[in-house]
């Protein structure tokens, strides 16, 4: 009896209450949706949601890493667009360009993210304003590159394959990409010194520094990773919709922040699990999908979207009482 109790106690210690609550909300939403139409519980619909959720999932991964440090990355919208748009530059190199298109785009995101990291870690500019400026710079670069229009190029075969193909048992490739990124992130966060350092910095950077962690390096690397993940999501999005367009990343900033926070990551840093972020991403994706399937008008969708997020935050996202 008591052995069982202990086991239960260890189990609940490992299951993040916020992640559990978010997963619970996902199930409730699906059940509510199934009252409206039974197709909400069909495997095809669920797989499609996972595929769409993968784009948000990649962005939310970067956002979560940055949140764990106690920072924020507002440069997501245009770094996603950079990832989507830099293909002509690579395709211009002929056959090799085709092969390098995806790494090249991700590299562009990595570079811009690295500059974010330098600004935040070494220049000590608050991340909220520095990444905002980087967003404007990335926008400026893309406007110059394309002359303000949608570029006339199409996404390459490889991008198309990654974003829309199904290779195994009809499971979308985008989902495999997300799973790979997720496994890597979980490994990095829980099994490496880098992960320990991220949590330590989020709790108190000064203490982390005194413990011998190269805090500035870790912060810089994390912002670079966030930039690369945003650009990667842009690559997939461009492959999914077969073209890149201005402001294609705009609808992803707020959902990414909401997903990470609903998943229980503390926005002030130091606390959060990746499982929670996965739950948050699924929650946001399914909420958006249900609202659009019900053919709700945009106004009503925004109202419900905002209200649901607030309701869920009030239910379990409250801070502990200060003092």
């Amino acid at each position: 009896m008591s052995a069982q109790m202990t086991r239960l106690a260890t189990l609940t210690r490992y299951v993040d209450p916020a992640a559990a609550a978010a997963f619970g909300c996902v199930i409730i939403l699906l059940l509510l949706g199934s009252l409206y139409s039974s197709s909400f519980l069909s495997p095809e619909y669920l797989l499609q949601q996972l595929q769409v959720g993968a784009f948000l999932g990649l962005i939310a991964t970067g956002m979560m890493l940055v949140f764990l440090l106690g920072q924020i990355d507002l440069s997501v919208p245009w770094l996603v667009t950079v990832g989507g748009m830099m293909s002509t530059a690579a395709a211009g190199w002929g056959h090799w360009g085709e092969a390098f298109a995806i790494p090249f785009r991700i590299g562009c995101g990595l570079l811009l993210g690295l500059i974010n990291g330098i600004g935040v870690a070494y220049l000590r500019v608050p991340s909220m304003i520095f990444t905002l400026g980087m967003n404007a710079v990335a926008q400026g670069l893309m406007v110059i590159r394309t002359g303000g229009f949608a570029p006339q190029d199409h996404s390459t075969e490889a991008m198309h394959f990654l974003a829309t193909g199904h290779s195994l048992f009809g499971i979308p490739n985008a989902l495999f990409v997300w799973i790979a990124v997720a496994l890597l992130t979980v490994f990095m966060l829980t099994r490496t010194t880098y992960g320990r350092a991220v949590y330590a910095i989020g709790n108190r950077e000064r203490a982390a520094y005194l413990s011998g962690i190269p805090t500035q390096l870790v912060v810089m690397a994390t912002f670079a990773a966030s930039g690369a993940l945003s650009a990667f999501a842009g690559v997939l999005l461009a492959g999914y919709s077969t073209k890149a367009y201005q402001a294609m990343g705009d609808p992803y900033l707020l959902p990414a922040i909401a997903a990470v926070v609903l998943g229980g990551t503390n926005i002030l840093g130091g606390r959060g699990s990746y499982l929670g972020t996965v739950a948050g991403v699924l929650l946001i994706t399914i909420l958006q999908s249900i609202l659009s399937v019900m053919q709700m008008e945009e106004a009503g969708r925004q109202l419900i979207y905002g209200s649901v997020i607030i309701a869920m935050l009030l239910a379990y996202g409250r801070q502990r009482r200060a003092e």
Partner: peptide, 23 residues
């Protein structure tokens, strides 16, 4: 009174205000 983080709380209310504006 809700003890929410200002960033996320105002993000969500922003969606509500925009919904009202669209309506």
């Amino acid at each position: 009174y809700g003890r929410l983080q200002p960033i996320v709380a105002t993000l969500a209310t922003g969606a509500i205000y925009f919904g009202l504006a669209l309506w």
